[in-house]
């Protein structure tokens, strides 16, 4: 059984369509990264899974049931974007309140506060918390009651690098325990290692979905080879540009060349045979490159369809 099954869903607000015929599934124990520009429909997808919105067309199944059932919600954790709490309650009171509402054991509360590093601030009012602390409290709230499905909307916003690393460690741990996770973000750096699959949304349409290697293959983006300390840089530049590769000079004696799939090994062999590079870096297309590629394709598509 899939944790989330979205089939042919369209969502309209009045005359505005925010999701077009979306089909998406999330397996048990899988982490799906959901990426897209502001207003692409990420939060709408979350709300559909949470049962806060009724679909205009299509079907949504969560943990094998319809969303919004109490049984489903008990097994579900959600961290909203820009999470806020009752300012007059302390961190510990807040977590205890939400634990009672969820029917989770109150003994978890202190453990969770420790896990997100809020033990020392637990008895201060939430009013005095910084944005990052609120975000961490929100995360602790989402993990209450060991959810089987976790929805995180922009979880890293406002977190410092250490807290971000801790967040990803927590995600990895939850995944090992068998939780399914949807991670919604437009901060792409650092996410790659922690997701199984990525889905890219633009203007309410799913542009691409699959593992990162799958997406790389489909996008067919060039890897960049960067070599430094070359003796004959100018000759390389001329030769490669003439051969149709895009090569540019970098640094003192360096060169960067775009290696379209299939040419990478060739180019490297040439470099090693005919020169003595001091250092070589191979940069695979990153998630950011993929994202940029699918985004620009989405804009050209919509421009193409509109006369």
């Amino acid at each position: 059984m899939n944790a989330v099954e979205i089939e042919g869903v369209s969502q309209r607000y009045g005359s505005m369509t925010v999701l077009h015929d979306l089909t998406l599934s999330l397996g048990e124990g899988e982490v799906l990264g959901l990426f897209g520009h502001n207003g692409a429909g990420k939060t709408t997808v979350m709300k559909l899974i949470l049962g806060l919105l009724k679909v205009s067309a299509g079907q949504v199944h969560v943990l094998g049931c319809r969303p919004a059932q109490a049984d489903v919600r008990r097994q579900l954790g959600y961290l909203p974007e820009n999470v806020t709490f009752y300012p007059q309650l302390s961190g510990r009171e807040t977590l205890r309140y939400f634990a009672r509402l969820k029917g989770a054991a109150l003994t978890q509360v202190d453990d969770l506060l420790e896990q997100v590093g809020l033990t020392s601030a637990a008895d201060r009012r939430v009013k005095t918390y910084s944005k990052g602390m609120r975000q961490r409290l929100g995360l602790a709230q989402a993990v209450l009651g060991e959810p089987r499905l976790l929805l995180l909307d922009e979880p890293t916003v406002g977190l410092d690098p250490i807290a971000t690393r801790d967040l990803y460690l927590l995600i990895d741990r939850l995944r090992q325990q068998g939780a399914s996770i949807i991670l919604c973000s437009h901060v792409l750096a650092g996410v790659e290692a922690h997701i199984n699959r990525a889905a890219i949304l633009a203007n309410g349409c799913l542009q691409a979905i699959g593992s990162l290697s799958r997406l790389r293959e489909d996008a067919d983006l060039p890897a960049r080879i960067r070599a430094s300390g070359l003796c004959r840089r100018e000759q390389w530049l001329q030769r490669w540009n003439a051969a149709g590769h895009t090569a540019t000079a970098v640094g003192g004696n360096g060169i960067e060349v775009m290696a379209v799939n299939g040419h990478k090994v060739d180019l490297l062999r040439q470099l090693f045979h005919e020169d003595q590079p001091q250092d070589i870096e191979i940069l695979q297309p990153s998630l950011e490159d993929l994202y940029g590629y699918y985004m620009s394709r989405a804009t050209t598509d919509t421009e193409g369809t509109q006369p």
Binding site: L50, R73, Y86, F98
Partner: peptide, 14 residues
Amino acid sequence: EGGTLMLLLTYPLG
């Protein structure tokens, strides 16, 4: 307005 209503509505409460 405080943002807590949406969170409450995602909990197992009618």
